[in-house]
C-alpha cells in the first residue's frame, strides 16, 4: 500500500532520517519504535506531507505521494499528530466535524459520527464539552476520531500513548486494533515499545534516524538487541 525507499530528511544541517525504507501492507499495523529524537515523528510528518524529503521516494498505491499535506489527506492518508492538537475552544462534536473538512457528503458524515460514538462511547457523553476540558486519554480518543472522520485508508498515529495513564494506554491500543479490524491500515509511532510490538504485524526500530532492525512485530519482540535496549529485559 505504502512503500518508502531511501528516505532522507534534513532539518537544515541536521540529518533527521537517513536511508529509511518501509513497506506497509494493506490491512496491517506497522509499528515504528524508537527513543526520543530517533526520528519517529519526522517520519510521520514526512509521510503526511508536512516535511519535504531531501531524497528518497514515497510510493502510495504505486504512485508517488503528493508533497502538500492537503493533497496527501485527499489521497486517504491522515495523521493524528503528536500531542493531539485538538481545537481546545471547540466542542468535541465540532472537532470531529473539522476532521471531515474535505468531505461534502452530509449523510456520510452523519453516519460516520455515529460510527465514532460506537467506537468511542466516552466521546458520546462529552459531545458538547470543549475539547480542552477533556482528560488526556479522552483527548487522544477525540483526536483519533477526528482523524477517522476524513475516512482515511491509512491512519498515521504519532505517539498516541503520550502522557496517558497505563489503563488509558490499554484502552487506546484496544481501539487501534478495532480500527484496523474495520479495514483501516495503521502506522503507529511509539515509545511504548512492548505494547506496540506486541500488536504490530510489521515493525522497525529507529535510532538516530536509521533503521537498525526491521521485521515482524513478533520477531522484534524476541530480538535480543531490541529486548535489551527497548524492553529493558536483561539476559
Amino acid at each position: 500500500m505504502l512503500e518508502i525507499s531511501g528516505l532522507q530528511v534534513k532539518y537544515g544541517e541536521i540529518h533527521a532520517l537517513r536511508d529509511v525504507s518501509l513497506k506497509v501492507r494493506a490491512g496491517s499495523i506497522v509499528a515504528v519504535v524508537g527513543a526520543n529524537g530517533a526520528g519517529k515523528s519526522t517520519l510521520m510528518l514526512t509521510i503526511a506531507g508536512l516535511l519535504p524529503p531531501a531524497a528518497g521516494q514515497i510510493l502510495y498505491e504505486a504512485k508517488p505521494l503528493p508533497r502538500q499535506a492537503y493533497e496527501v489527506l485527499a489521497r486517504g492518508i491522515c495523521l493524528v499528530p503528536e500531542r493531539r492538537r485538538l481545537y481546545a475552544n471547540l466542542t468535541v462534536r465540532e472537532n470531529l466535524l473539522m476532521g471531515a473538512f474535505l468531505r461534502r457528503d452530509q449523510k456520510g458524515i452523519r453516519a460516520d459520527l455515529e460510527r465514532m460514538y460506537k467506537l468511542f462511547p466516552i466521546l458520546h457523553e462529552r459531545l458538547k464539552q470543549y475539547a480542552g476540558t477533556l482528560s488526556g486519554g479522552e483527548q487522544q480518543m477525540a483526536a483519533i476520531a477526528r482523524g477517522l472522520m476524513s475516512r482515511p485508508r491509512l491512519l498515521l498515529l504519532d505517539e498516541p500513548s503520550l502522557g496517558l495513564a497505563p489503563l488509558m494506554v490499554q484502552n487506546v491500543f484496544k481501539t487501534v486494533r478495532e480500527i484496523r479490524d474495520q479495514g483501516t491500515t495503521i502506522v503507529l509511532a511509539e515509545q511504548n515499545a512492548f505494547e506496540a510490538l506486541a500488536m504490530a504485524d510489521d515493525a522497525l526500530v529507529l535510532e538516530t534516524g536509521r533503521v537498525i532492525v526491521a521485521g515482524s512485530g513478533r520477531d522484534l519482540l524476541n530480538d535480543p538487541l531490541v529486548r535489551k535496549a527497548y524492553l529493558g529485559i536483561k539476559h
Partner: peptide, 17 residues
C-alpha cells in the same frame, strides 16, 4: 480561523494553508 488556532492541526484536516 482553524489556521489561526492551530495551523498544524488545520493542515492535518486538509486545509490548504
Amino acid at each position: 480561523v482553524a489556521v489561526r488556532e492551530d495551523f498544524v492541526a488545520a493542515e492535518m484536516m486538509g486545509i490548504n494553508l
